[in-house]
């Protein structure tokens, strides 16, 4: 459900950017959605398709980048990559991880017709 709210925020930014740049139709959006953010890409696409109807972004394709989560293990010091909060250190199985980022929700670029 919060994907709807977040799409409202996104559409607000797009509307503004479009006015600023004289864009009347947006064909592609590139987003960066961290794997530790609260957003599920499929739910976001579903919400966006519904919310963007009738806007300049209604035909926009969403390109969603999900960079891997980088973390450092506090037990063995290894650098590791995670897909979710519940994963353990790939080297020693430790659960005490320093997680670096992963909660991004950013609009990186838009492509206009």
């Amino acid at each position: 459900m919060h994907e709807v709210s977040i799409c409202e925020h996104l559409l607000g930014i797009l509307d503004h950017e479009a006015r600023q740049h004289g864009v009347t139709r947006i064909t592609r959006l590139k987003l960066e959605i961290g794997r530790l953010s609260c957003l599920d890409p499929d739910a976001l696409r579903f919400a966006f398709d519904a919310m963007a109807l009738g806007t300049i972004a209604e035909a926009a394709k969403l390109q969603i980048d999900q960079p891997p989560i980088r973390a450092t293990c506090k037990d063995c010091g290894a650098a590791t990559e995670l897909d979710s909060r519940l994963e353990t250190c790939g080297s020693c199985g430790g659960t005490r991880l320093d997680i670096l980022g992963g909660d991004e929700m950013r609009l990186l670029e838009m492509e206009a017709a």
């Binding site: 709807v4 409202e8 925020h9 996104l10 930014i13 503004h16 600023q20 950013r106 609009l107 990186l108």
Partner: peptide
């Protein structure tokens, strides 16, 4: 939802 059809500030690579 604040952010829709409201005041806008241009930022590139913007946090949603």
């Amino acid at each position: 939802v604040p952010g829709l059809s409201q005041q806008r500030i241009i930022q590139i690579e913007r946090n949603i």
